[in-house]
């Protein structure tokens, strides 16, 4: 192997996923714009919607998780991330607090499904069935923030966190430097 190849191989890996989120946080990752070229110098993406790798190929340094856990598949993916990633980051308010999907948390699951598939004012469902294919992951009783399911190492708030915040955080983590987030980046009103 050449020296250059060696360097590439040794690059730390980053995985990302969107659980019960809207992909807005991932859009924000893409908002780092041309800096993604610099990022690629620093890291290699493993499992992530950005490169469409579906399963982990090995151990990762950082796992970035958007969205909370609304169903069993979310839980399985999150567990998988915990297993493969040294550092797990909750990215954005849904991962941290449950966010919009958690608005159903005060309503019993059965009522939610009935409203969505049977009783809602705009529902047209002559068969009166609630989708129940074995492929459809079962919903959890409520939407859980990630840290209630597995241990999360960092929380990066925002809806979504801005590209600059994500950039600063990743650079700090990858270069082992202290993270400095100026006031503008953590001010939300």
């Amino acid at each position: 192997m050449t020296k250059e190849q060696n360097r590439i191989m040794a690059k730390p890996k980053v995985a990302t996923t969107s659980l019960a989120g809207c992909f807005g946080c991932h859009m924000s990752i893409l908002d780092i714009d041309e800096r993604i070229l610099q990022l690629i110098e620093l890291i290699e993406f493993d499992k992530s919607p950005i490169n469409d790798i579906k399963e982990f190929t090995g151990e990762c340094l950082v796992g970035i998780v958007e969205g909370g856990c609304a169903n069993e598949e979310n839980v399985r993916v999150l567990q998988d991330f915990r297993k493969h990633c040294k550092i797990l980051i909750s990215l954005g308010d849904c991962a941290i607090n449950g966010g919009l999907p958690a608005m159903r948390n005060t309503i019993p699951l059965k009522e939610c499904l009935d409203e969505a598939y049977l009783n809602g004012p705009s529902v047209y469902n002559p068969s009166g069935q609630i989708p129940n294919d074995p492929e459809i992951p079962l919903l959890l009783d409520k939407v859980y923030p990630c840290h209630e399911v597995v241990k999360m190492d960092y929380h990066l708030p925002g809806c979504p966190p801005s590209a600059d915040t994500i950039w600063q955080t990743l650079v700090a983590l990858l270069t082992d430097a202290p993270l400095e987030l100026p006031y503008e980046l953590i001010k939300y009103d």
């Binding site: 069993e72 598949e73 839980v75 399985r76 567990q79 019993p108 699951l109 059965k110 499904l113 609630i130 129940n132 074995p134 992951p137 079962l138 919903l139 959890l140 009783d141 409520k142 859980y144 840290h147 209630e148 399911v149 597995v150 241990k151």
Partner: peptide, 25 residues
Amino acid sequence: FQPTFDIQKALGEAKEIAGRPSMHF
């Protein structure tokens, strides 16, 4: 899991509504 998280309890309602077991757990 976090020790306070109980996956079976969290899935209980859905299993009953769907009438099938969990695929993953």
